[in-house]
Design a protein around this nucleic acid. Structure first.
Length: 305
DNA sequence: CACCAGGGACTAC
DNA sequence: GTAGTCCATGGT
């Protein structure tokens, strides 16, 4: 990824097929989000890099992503890691040409890629965050999921306050490995979810589960099976994590109710499609199932920015 | 007041 | 392997 360091700020040059506004609309879908804030077209995000909490103010102008540091300017090696995070967050290294070529000949995707052109999968570079967020979201509506996430982050995460606004980091697995089930039950997590999340924190703290281990798996299926061996991680959660954290474009959370509702809308059905119907539709998406899913998710939200 | 929500574990055939 | 049940609470 091309980028330059201008001493006090960074400029990142994304691919041509990149729409900053579309990405912000997705990031802005919940007013309860605590891991970033959008204000006046800028995206504020607190990152912990090299042991330092760095507040980033991210904007877009003249075809480049500009990252400023309102609190203090980090060292060059820290800036490099911030660039890496942002590249993963917005999936900037992905070449979308073949996705768009496929979508042009797909009845469902064709209108979506026209409408949301340049939207990229918004990732979750932190594996622990991706796993916990997926488990929180299992079988409850997204509004309540955001409520639970906010409580979790505000209870166990670090924060930084700047100009009256508080910015949060997602809790670390080290911290969560040391809490008790009742600590999460008190936040209205179910007993099961409480157990799953603390167990995963302990597995990660032991070093048996890392993002590197997942990335080193030979193929998609081995990564998925590795994740599914963890209690609390079923097919949906494994696919979700591979999509949002490992950024495998072939991952496909086919049982996802959001996907089902989006397809119901796009196909103007009076019922949700069956799994078999979705499998049939998705044969044309081969290689890009994750992007097809993400564009369908995007279709569920009105533009609220 | 039903029914659903970005599922998964557990149990019983 | 797969069908049934429970989880727990908010949103609509």
């Amino acid at each position: 990824m091309n980028w330059i360091n201008n001493e006090t700020y960074i400029e990142i040059y994304p691919p041509l097929e990149f729409n900053y506004r579309e990405c912000l609309i997705f990031l802005n879908r919940s007013s309860q989000e605590v891991l970033h804030r959008i204000k006046d077209g800028y995206l504020y995000k607190l990152l912990k890099v090299n042991g330092q909490n760095i507040l980033c103010k991210i904007g877009y102008q003249a075809n480049s992503i500009k990252v400023e540091f309102p609190v203090h300017t980090p060292s060059e090696s820290t800036q490099e890691k911030i660039v890496q995070y942002i590249c993963e967050w917005f999936d900037l290294k992905r070449n979308l040409n073949s996705f768009y070529e496929m979508a042009q000949e797909d009845k469902i995707l064709q209108p979506l890629v026209k409408k949301y052109y340049g939207l990229r999968i918004i990732g979750m570079p932190d594996l622990f965050e991706a796993l916990v967020w997926a488990i929180i979201g299992q079988q409850i509506n997204l509004t309540f999921a955001y409520t639970l996430k906010r409580r979790f982050v505000e209870q166990f995460g670090e924060s930084l306050t700047f100009e009256g606004e508080t910015y949060w980091l997602f809790p670390t697995y080290e911290r969560v490995a040391a809490i008790q089930v009742d600590d999460l039950r008190n936040l209205q997590f179910t007993l099961r979810k409480s157990e799953f999340i603390i167990d995963i924190a302990k597995i990660m703290a032991s070093g048996q589960l890392t993002k590197e281990i997942l990335l080193q798996q030979e193929d998609f299926l081995k990564s998925k099976n590795f994740l599914m061996a963890i209690r609390g991680v079923g097919a949906w959660t494994a696919d979700y994590v591979l999509m949002k954290c490992i950024q495998d474009p072939t991952s496909f959370p086919i049982a996802d109710v959001g996907l089902h509702n989006a397809l119901k809308n796009q196909l103007a059905l009076n019922r949700k499609p069956t799994i078999e119907e979705i499998k049939s539709i998705a044969t044309h998406w081969e290689g890009w199932q994750a992007y097809a899913t993400f564009y369908l998710w995007r279709s569920l939200y009105d533009e609220t920015i």
